[in-house]
Structures are given as structure tokens and as C-alpha cells.
Amino acid sequence: MERILITGALGQIGTELTLKLREKYGEGNVLPTDIKAPEDDNLKGLPFEILDVRDMERMKGIVSEFRPDTMLHMAALLSATAEKNPQFAWDINMVGLMNALETAREYDLKFFTPSSIGAFGPSTPKENTPQVTIQRPTTMYGVNKVAGELLCDYYFEKFGVDTRSVRFPGLISHVKEPGGGTTDYAVEIYFEAVRNGAYTSFIDKSTNMDMMYMDDAIDAIIKLMEADPDQLVDRNAFNVTAMSINPEMVANEIRKHIPGFTLDYDVDPVRQGIAASWPNAIDASEAKRQWGFQPKYTLEKMTETMLEAIRNKK
């Protein structure tokens, strides 16, 4: 990667991804885009383009002018939000992806878009979920992600577009607060622990889900995109994860730093149903073997980092 265009740059991953890429590749070589202007002070006043990913002509115009060699297509609606408006989710997640792939084909761009553990469903093996396994999701978000994986593989096989992807678990960050995902509790719990010393979880106590700290997620994107293509047996998409956790496990770690922290439950049937359809723990061995994926953050290290960073925001 030398010149990088990012769509959905103000989303869950995009802001931190933009900052890390500018630090690594140079400010002038990374162009973030999104449907609205940035409010984050770290992005204000720097190169930025307004882009609705459903507008392919606008997308091609930006690419033609900026001349990137890589597109990181991050624009998407997350799981719980997508369930509330399936048609809109299809338009953003699938029409946007098709436009991005067509642009990548026409301009010969390396291409990344994230998939998700949401691409799995109730019939997927729950424990040690393999890289290649049955994928029959029961949500619009999951359907979008499976279709997206297949579409990216199609563009690789049919047109030679260098497409790559990972299946992200829940991503945890102190920079960007939650935006409509089923795993949002694992971010909210840290903010509420610092602010109020208590949290009410919408996910049930015994529900294990895969998670990853945002720094590890961003490092995974960069490492995969820098990998020698001859190393990659799989492409769309690699299982990645750092930990399999439930709300009680997070609460117990928080209590090591905030002894009086209390955790209650008010389970949301929609998000709980989505969570129950996903694996408890996935197997990321192929990502480790094929391109050296190796997360640095454990639950303990992540908890300490999150609480310290949130306290410093107050």
C-alpha cells in the first residue's frame, strides 16, 4: 500500500484506522471519505471527501483524482441497526460494496472490506468455529456479509481484483462509542463503569462472544494488506479474534480496578437473539498461519487500557 482511499471513515473503525494509516504512510497518502464532514478534531482541516457509497460516479471521480493504489471499504450498517431497516441496510452494505468493487476493478486497486462473525448462523459450529464452515445467518447484516464475502471472491476469481477480508468479532474502543452493533455492551460497560460505577447489560450473563481491542483490529487490516498475495490460500474472509468473553467476565476484570462496580441485566430480545445465533469462540489459526495474525491485547490488558483512557477523557 502506498496511497489509500477509505470509505466509511467516520464509522466504528474508520477514525482510528485513518489516524494510524496517516502516521504510517503519510498524511497526503491517505484520503478518508464519508457521507458527512468530520467532527473529530484529529480529522478536521485535513484532506477529506464527502462520499455516499451508493453514488458510484462520485466514488470513481474521487479515485480518478486521488489515484490510490488501495481501497479500504469500511462503509456499512451494523447488525442491530440493519435489523431495524433491512432495505436501507441492503442499499448501504451491498449496493455500496458493488460500487466499490467495480471502482477497484476499473482502477486496478487492492481492495479490503471487513466481514464479521455475523456471517455465521445458528447451524454453524459454536466452538472453535473453522475458517471454512456452514454459513447460514438469520439477520440482514449476516446475509450482507456472506454475500459480500462471495462477491469479493467472485471479483478476485473473475476479474483478478486483489480482494482481502477478515471476519471481525466485536471491536472494543475508547475513541468511538457504540454505533448499533450486537457486541456494543462490551464498549458501553467500560464507559458506564467509569461514569456511574454500574451498568445494565442488554446481553445475558452467560452469552460468550468473540471480541478484539481496536488496536489489534487495525493492525490486522494493515498486516493482511501488506501480506504477500502468494501466501494467501483464503481471502474472503479470515477468522480473527483475541478473546471469547461474556458480560460477567468483563465485570470481574473491571472490579479489579473499580471494586464497587455493579452489573445488572435487562436483556434485549432482538440483540440477544442475534448473539445467540453466533459462535461462542472462533478458530483464527488460518490467519495466524497464512499472514502472521497475532493479537496483543488480552481481556486483562484491554480492561486496564480502556478504563485509563476513559478516565483521562473526563
Rank of each mutant, 00 (worst) to 15 (best):
Y213N: 00
D266K: 15
F261M: 05
G96I: 02
T81H: 08
W90R: 14
M212C: 05
I203K: 00
T139A: 06
V30S: 01
V175P: 01
E65N: 15
H73S: 13
Q272A: 01
E106P: 06
D52H: 04
Y185N: 00
R67G: 11
Q12T: 12
E149G: 05
W90G: 07
K205Y: 06
F168M: 10
V30K: 01
D268G: 11
Q290S: 02
Q272T: 02
N252P: 06
R311P: 11
P125N: 00
D55K: 12
S244M: 12
A119V: 04
K313W: 14
F168K: 07
K301I: 05
E248M: 15
D91Y: 11
A251G: 09
Y297T: 02
D219A: 15
L109W: 02
K60W: 10
D230N: 14
S165H: 03
L10Y: 01
F261C: 01
G26T: 05
D228L: 13
A275P: 02
E57H: 07
I254W: 08
A242K: 08
N280Q: 12
S165Y: 03
Q135A: 06
V161Q: 02
P279T: 04
T163H: 04
P114C: 12
V240E: 05
M1I: 14
Y297L: 08
T183W: 05
V166C: 06
P169A: 01
R235F: 10
S116V: 05
Y213C: 00
F293R: 08
E286T: 07
F48E: 03
V240K: 03
P32W: 04
V187H: 00
R289S: 13
V166D: 00
T7M: 09
A237Y: 05
K256T: 04
D268Q: 10
T103N: 08
F238Y: 12
A237T: 09
I172L: 07
Y199W: 05
A75K: 09
T303Y: 10
A284E: 02
R195H: 06
A284R: 00
G121A: 04
G160F: 09
A80M: 15
D162G: 03
S206R: 08
T113Y: 09
K176W: 02
K313I: 15
I6P: 00
G26F: 04
E102C: 12
S244I: 11
E57A: 09
Y154H: 12
H257D: 09
P114K: 10
M302P: 03
W90N: 13
T113D: 08
P114Q: 11
E157P: 08
K145L: 09
N236C: 15
L17C: 13
V63F: 04
A251Q: 11
L31W: 00
W90F: 14
E102G: 13
P47T: 11
L5K: 00
D40F: 14
G180W: 03
F112T: 02
S173I: 01
K223C: 12
P47H: 10
G179S: 11
P68A: 10
L109Q: 03
S277E: 06
